Amino acid sequence: MAWQVQYREFGGPDVLEFVEVPTPAAPAGGVVVETRSIGVNPIDSKLRSGARASAPIDEPRVPGSDAAGVVVEVGPDAGDWAVGDEVVVRNARGAYTTHLVASADQLVRKPAAVGWEEAAAIGVPAGTAYQALKSLGVELGTTVLVHGGSGAVGQAALQFARNWGATVIATASERNQDRLRDFDAIPVVYGPGLLERVREAAPGGIDVVLDCAGTDEALETSFALVADRSRIGTIVQGAKAPSLGIRAWAGGSPVPMTAEELALRGEAYGVALELMELGDFEVELAANYPLSQAADAQDMSITGGLRGKITLDPQA
């Protein structure tokens, strides 16, 4: 038997149920992964609460899109995957479970040097940051401003941009300035006077902005710094992006991602894992909860004010 977290109606964390279910079988072209760690993302709570639109619930729905674990069963035509392979699952469906079904093309090999929690935590942050920066044209010599640089996506963006040879300015609260310096970013405190502080930090100007904060201050500062709004992207204010003339990917955006953008998000897993193996990329972990306490983990991810990723332990 397997265990999973599910919900049958939209609502608060209390609608989540921890239930025993039959262990799934590997389908043709796919595998069953016994999960070792599961990533918790804000989108999980938004979908569960109904804050982010989704289809009506007509059967129990299992949240989660990030997981890492061990292949325990392989279906026919699943390529060269084998029982015992340690993997990260890309774009998982229903990751809050002890036994996750995935297609062969969703799997990425996990390097032995990368821990389970780190592997499960990279998906949404690394995929979002990598795709957004690539779509905005960040490369060697670019000067990029990242609003909300101490969050999970922000930290991933700082590291990718640094590794590509960009100059990075990043905003965060006073208490998170040292974290920005860890990634060689030039730290700037948000709040009154932000525009002047950014201009002082980047006298040559800003080429690209990635907004991971979503505040009016962040957007207004961005508009004052970058005239070409196609080089301003947001992962938070997607619903407003078309009317503002800026770019957005998911985050409530009515514009679907292109095939190229989706491919970039998938590509990010392998890139991040390789950098992690080399010691050039890291994921900050905030808390680890048993899978049975997923409601507490989701509540903490929205309201707890933690810096770093929250994960679930399906083996606890």
Rank of each mutant, 00 (worst) to 15 (best):
M1T: 07
A2Q: 10
A2S: 11
Q6V: 14
Y7C: 14
Y7M: 13
F10I: 04
D14A: 13
V15H: 05
L16E: 06
E20K: 11
P24F: 12
P27C: 04
V32Y: 04
E34R: 15
R36H: 07
I38P: 03
G39M: 07
V40I: 15
L47K: 12
R48Y: 08
R48P: 05
I57E: 06
I57F: 04
E59F: 14
E59R: 15
P60I: 07
P63H: 15
S65I: 12
S65N: 14
A67F: 08
E73D: 13
V74P: 02
D77V: 15
W81Q: 01
W81L: 03
V87M: 12
V89G: 00
V101N: 05
V101H: 07
D105N: 12
L107E: 10
R109V: 13
E118Q: 09
A119C: 06
A120M: 04
G137V: 00
T143Q: 02
G149V: 01
A156W: 01
A156K: 04
A157S: 03
F160S: 08
F160Y: 15
R162A: 06
N163V: 11
N163W: 12
G165F: 05
A166T: 10
A166C: 09
A172R: 09
S173C: 12
E174A: 14
R175E: 15
Q177C: 08
R179H: 12
D182S: 00
V189L: 09
Y190E: 08
Y190Q: 09
Y190S: 04
G193H: 07
G193C: 10
L194E: 04
E196Y: 01
R197P: 02
R199A: 08
G205F: 00
G205W: 01
I206S: 02
V208E: 00
G214L: 03
E217D: 08
E217V: 03
E220T: 03
E220D: 05
T221A: 11
F223E: 03
A224G: 15
D228P: 00
S230T: 11
T234C: 01
I235M: 03
V236A: 03
G238N: 01
A239W: 10
K240E: 08
K240R: 13
P242G: 08
S243R: 15
G252M: 01
S253K: 00
S253N: 08
P254G: 03
P254Y: 00
V255D: 02
T258G: 06
T258P: 05
A259Q: 06
R265G: 00
R265Q: 06
A268W: 11
Y269M: 04
V271S: 08
L273A: 11
L273N: 14
L273G: 06
E274A: 14
L275A: 13
L278K: 14
P290I: 12
A295C: 11
A295E: 13
A295V: 12
D296I: 10
A297D: 07
D299C: 07
M300Y: 10
G304S: 12
L306Y: 08
L306F: 12
I310Q: 09
I310V: 10
T311L: 14
P314W: 15
A316I: 03
